[in-house]
Amino acid sequence: MTDEEPPAARRGPTWLIVVVVAAALAVCCCSGVIGLTVAGSAGLLGR
């Protein structure tokens, strides 16, 4: 039964890493969209 424990233990950190990376990408994308929106409303994009 000790052979089954390491894969189960590895799955937790793997999913945690995936969630952290996905959250980081979401924050980056959202902050980029907000920055472009603010820049556009301030007239910094030359439109």
Rank of each mutant, 00 (worst) to 15 (best):
T37N: 14
G40S: 11
W15I: 08
G12N: 08
M1Y: 07
E5N: 10
W15N: 08
C29W: 15
R47L: 13
A8Y: 01
A26Q: 05
S31N: 09
V27T: 05
R11G: 02
T2A: 11
G35Q: 04
C29L: 15
C28Q: 08
S31T: 13
G46A: 13
V20Q: 06
A8W: 00
R11V: 11
A39Y: 12
A42P: 02
V38D: 03
R11P: 01
G35W: 02
D3R: 07
L44P: 02
V18N: 08
G46Y: 06
I17H: 12
V21S: 05
R47Q: 12
A42Y: 14
G43P: 00
M1P: 02
C30H: 09
C29Y: 13
G43F: 03
A9V: 12
L16R: 07
P7T: 03
C28K: 04
R10N: 06
A42V: 12
V33D: 05
G40N: 13
A26N: 01
G32Q: 04
G40P: 01
V21P: 00
R47A: 12
L45S: 11
V19S: 10
A39S: 15
G46Q: 10
T2P: 00
A24L: 15
V38Y: 10
E5G: 00
V19D: 06
A23D: 05
R11H: 09
A22W: 04
M1C: 03
C30D: 10
M1G: 05
V21H: 00
T37Y: 11
V38K: 12
M1I: 03
L45M: 15
G12K: 11
L16Q: 05
T37P: 00
V18A: 14
V27I: 14
C28Y: 05
T37F: 13
V27M: 04
G43M: 06
E5D: 09
A8N: 08
I34D: 05
L25T: 13
A22L: 15
V18R: 14
C29I: 15
E4M: 12
L36F: 14
V20Y: 06
A42H: 14
I17E: 06
L36T: 08
I17K: 15
R47C: 09
A26Y: 09
V19K: 12
S31W: 05
L45I: 14
G32K: 00
A22M: 15
L16N: 01
G35T: 05
L45D: 09
A22R: 05
V33G: 01
G43R: 06
G35C: 04
T2I: 12
E4S: 11
R47T: 10
P13S: 03
L16T: 02
E4C: 06
E4H: 10
G12V: 13
V38Q: 04
V19C: 10
G12H: 08
M1Q: 04
L16W: 05
P13L: 07
W15S: 03
R11K: 13
A39E: 10
L45W: 03
I17F: 07
A26P: 01
A26S: 05
R10W: 11
L25W: 14
P13G: 03
L25D: 09
